[in-house]
Design a protein around this nucleic acid. Sequence first.
RNA 1: CGGGGUAUAGCGCAGAUGGUAGCGCGCUGCGUUCGGGACGCAGAGGCCUUGAGUUCAAAUCUCAAUACUCCGACCA
Length: 478
Amino acid sequence: MSENKKLVEAITPINEDFTQWYTDICLKAELADYSSVKGFVILRPYGYAIWENIMRLMDARFKATGHENVSMPLLIPESLLQKEKDHVEGFAPEVAWVTMGGSELLEDRLCVRPTSETLFCDHFAHVLHSYRDLPMKYNQWCSVVRWEKTTRPFLRSREFLWQEGHTIHETAEEAIAETESQLEEYADFCEKDLCIPVLKGKKTEKEKFAGAEATYSIEAMMHDGKALQSGTSHYFGDGFSRAFGVQFTGRDNTLQYPFQTSWGVSTRLIGAIIMTHGDDEGLILPPAVAPVQVVIVPVAAHKPGVLEKAEELRTRLASFARVKVDASDNSPGWKFAQWEMKGVPLRLEIGPKDIEKEQCVLVRRDTREKSFVKWDELEKAVPALLDALAKNLYDRAAENRAKRTWTATTMEEVQRLAAGENGYIKTMWCGETACEEMMKEKAGLSSRNMPFEQETLSDVCPCCGRPAKTMVVWGKAY
RNA sequence: CGGGGUAUAGCGCAGAUGGUAGCGCGCUGCGUUCGGGACGCAGAGGCCUUGAGUUCAAAUCUCAAUACUCCGACCA
């Protein structure tokens, strides 16, 4: 293959310029495209298919734990948004407004939802009467708009697709349990289905959601050592309930305020997949969400029987895998490269030589390891290889994270580490926002979260020297 | 929103000192190929981002705008 040919579909080497590599993947693997609306991106069929798989798998998890889907309005009257002070202050800088209806100026302008807590609360106030109605566990799949200043496909765009769960409960304990169990659900999904190890923990006061009492997150580490907040779960206490007058008659016949949660993941997960698993050849998709799990490439497709056999194998695999035959006119080599770039986990080659031997060639995307498999053994071999690939993706990501995680006990150490490779830096912390801000100023780090799995690294905060309360993981974030 | 960079065919680029556009890949058709990015022949495809200047003449010079992109601050 000549240099010239390679240039055509070449992507920037991952270790040369990671951000450029990322953009190349988004465009060249045909996941996304820019639109003529500034900051808004288009999800192309291949990218949207990944999202569809994510939705399907997560939706099943939500349903299995008693959640119901609803659809809330796109627009929020300003008066409604104003009801919870912290919330409106947090979101005001990035909301888009609708001020006209047709040619009429609106008396109460409407905000395009940046998130739907206010609408859910308004609705809960209407439909909640008795403790017998609780819990209400709702979810919606929708898009939201936040007027971001800088945008990047999947990581930050002015409109993004997501899922937002909103629940209300009779007791604080129950709401807290919901907050935690949804975070666990996200973590499990990321680790099992997306093969991305995540760090579960509580956000600091500075980083928590506007209006929440507590915010929990799962943090994933990308190939370049930067962190990506990949899911959040919030506990609201009864703050929103009080602000919106959501009440119910309790078991003791008194009026009470329910306790509330909300939680969400977005198409940002696709960004996480790209940046966690990809390599110089392109994308590598976790089998659970890959739109195509096995691509069949016929070799010498013009020879009698080859295409027929390819089609026969497709039918055979279709009962247990998402499979596609590439019968285009391109050369086999071109197809290999193309489907590798698109991250298809497994390639099946079938040519005249294989047909003689009643076998085919299976090639893993992650290791490029080839195996010759008899047709009769495909039902076993394909799932086994997909599983092995998934495990390897997870292990590689976990290894990268382990390699890039350090601990520090003094500010000098933090600064020295922060000046080197990107990664997680664990330190103790006194709990003061001032010290968190100092981390940002002196080392360029933000707190990712306070992991559930705490360690005692020292007795004092490296910033101020006062007694330490918790261990925090710091890093640079997307 | 601050600081850089870029804008010419679908993509990647060339187009010194001004004279109305070219290359590679891709695309279309036909034929030969096919186990790691095949080849031949014949085609199609451009308001040179937009708007103002300067000039006989602007892709080229000047100034603005816009978009994308990278680096910071802010956020899923």
